[in-house]
Amino acid sequence: MDLSLTTRQEGNHTVVVVGGEIDVYTAPKLREQLIDLVSGGSYHLVVDMEGVEFLDSTGLGVLVGGLKRVRAHEGSLRLVCTQERILKIFRITGLTKVFPIHSSIEEALAASE
């Protein structure tokens, strides 16, 4: 299972829908996508992780890198995730304190208003 990425615009937010496995092999693809968005002026990102089947520390690193980039432009990076096995990884690493995590894209967009 490879990584799939699609993006769409929702008002002044860009929603990035991620599917498949984010690991040391596929993480560079996600990193490039986030870098491209920020270089293109998208500073408010919502990353939908509902279709993610696997996430490792490399993937966490890429998300943190993305957050750093948008913050440099006073932007935001919100995550959408309800999968327990993925949420557990954010809890173990303490990254729930760093990323706002929402249960739906609508909720993430509303929280960002």
Binding site: R31, V64, I89, I92
Partner: peptide, 26 residues
């Protein structure tokens, strides 16, 4: 560590040992 050097691994912003720390939690 806001290096915008795209050739660098993004995980470089992470301390070495994070993988093991994650293992410890699992």
């Amino acid at each position: 560590d806001t290096s915008d050097d795209d050739s660098a691994e993004d995980s470089a912003g992470f301390p070495p040992g994070l993988g093991l720390a994650l293992i410890e939690g699992l």
